Simulated scan of single mutants.
Amino acid sequence: MNKELIRHAILSQLENQHALAVKSANEARDLATHEQSQPETQYDTVGLEASYLAHGQSQRVFDLDAMIQRYRNMTLRNFTSDDEIALSAYVELAYPDDTTKAFFIGPCAGGLELLIEEQKVHLITPDAPLARCMMGAYDGDEFELPGSNQTVEVVRIS
C-alpha cells in the first residue's frame, strides 16, 4: 500500500474539515458580535452563547491545524514482515469470517475512513484499544479483539 496516498487522503479530509471549521468559526464570531446579539434583558444569552460557540469553533480550527502539521511532518516508515507493528504501519487483519480489514496507525485523527485504491482503510491511533492490541505484533501473529472472543490474524504489515 502506498503510504503517500494514505497521507494525501488523510490530509484532504483534515483540510476539508479545517475549511468547514474556519467558516463555522467566522459565522459564530459574526453572530456573537452582531448588534442583534446584544442582550436586551439579563436573561438574553444569545450573544454569550454565540461567543462560546465561536470559541469552540476557533479551538477546533487550532486542533485541525495541529493535526495537519503532524501528518505533513510524519515520517512514513516502510515495514517488513520482520518488523513489529508501530506508528505509521499499514496493517491488514484477517477475521474468522474470512474477511480482511485494513488499518493505518497514525498519530491523530483516529476514526477517519479512507478509500485508497478501492481499499477501505481505517485510521486508528496508538491509544485506540485495537491499536494497543496490534502494537508490537508481527506478521502472522494472532490476538483477541478487545471486548470480544474473536481472534484475528495479522496478514500484512507495510
Rank of each mutant, 00 (worst) to 15 (best):
Q57F: 03
Q59L: 13
D82V: 00
Y71W: 11
P107T: 12
T80A: 04
L87M: 12
T80Q: 05
M67K: 07
T99Y: 06
F79E: 06
A50K: 09
H55W: 07
L64H: 09
D82W: 00
P107G: 13
S81W: 01
S81E: 14
I68A: 03
F103E: 02
R72Y: 03
R60N: 14
T100Y: 01
S51W: 10
Y95N: 12
Q59P: 01
T80K: 06
A94S: 14
F104N: 02
H55D: 11
D98K: 12
K101M: 13
I68T: 07
A66P: 00
S51P: 02
A66T: 15
A54L: 09
S81V: 10
A54Q: 06
A86W: 02
N73P: 01
H55F: 09
A94P: 07
R77G: 00
N78Q: 13
Y52E: 10
L93E: 03
A66R: 14
Y52L: 12
R70G: 04
C108M: 02
T99H: 13
T80N: 05
R77C: 00
N73W: 00
Y95G: 04
S51C: 02
T99K: 14
E92Q: 11
Q69M: 09
D82H: 09
Q57A: 09
P96L: 05
D63E: 13
C108R: 05
Y90K: 04
Y90Q: 04
N78H: 10
Y71G: 02
R77W: 02
Q69S: 12
I68P: 04
R70L: 14
S81K: 13
T99A: 11
D82M: 04
A102N: 07
V61T: 15
G56E: 15
K101I: 02
D65T: 10
T75H: 12
K101N: 12
S58C: 01
A89Y: 10
P107I: 09
Y52D: 09
D63P: 00
M74I: 15
I85V: 15
S88A: 03
T100V: 12
K101V: 06
A50T: 06
Y95P: 03
R72Q: 14
I105G: 01
A50R: 08
D97T: 11
T100L: 01
M74A: 13
E92T: 11
